[in-house]
């Protein structure tokens, strides 16, 4: 299960962002996970909640946006439907994955100290 190592990298990234806002509390961490990223969202959430104490994310919730896989022909742009062969026969071209393999930190939401707002 590599979700823990992903969470570890995620927390490092959040920490780097939070450093620019001293005193702010990280409340929400938004991530986007592609269907073909090889990441189990449930495991990721569990790993986040297990790993977050004593980190910058201790008071944060994780919000995961799941992105479906989308394959297209790079030539005629036809979408290849789920479960179909990953090839455009008319163009004799292998399909290309347009989205669905992302493991992204999208944004964080910070609660600022009162005198900071």
């Amino acid at each position: 299960m590599h979700e823990y190592s992903i969470v570890s990298a995620l927390v490092d990234k959040v920490e780097a962002q939070a450093r620019a806002h001293p005193g702010a509390i990280v409340r929400v961490v938004h991530v986007a996970i592609g269907e073909l990223a090889g990441v189990e969202i449930e495991l990721l959430v569990t790993a986040f909640d297990t790993f977050k104490p004593k980190t910058v994310c201790a008071a944060a919730a994780i919000a995961v946006e799941s992105r479906p896989a989308r394959w297209r022909c790079p030539k005629c742009k036809t979408v290849i439907a789920r479960g179909e062969k990953l090839r455009c026969e008319p163009c004799a071209s292998p399909a290309r994955l347009e989205s669905g393999d992302e493991i992204m930190l999208q944004r964080i939401e910070l609660e600022m100290e009162d005198d900071d707002v």
Partner: peptide, 13 residues
Amino acid sequence: LVPVDVHDNILAG
């Protein structure tokens, strides 16, 4: 809450 946009690959390292 103040949103901070990041849009970064978590495994960029």
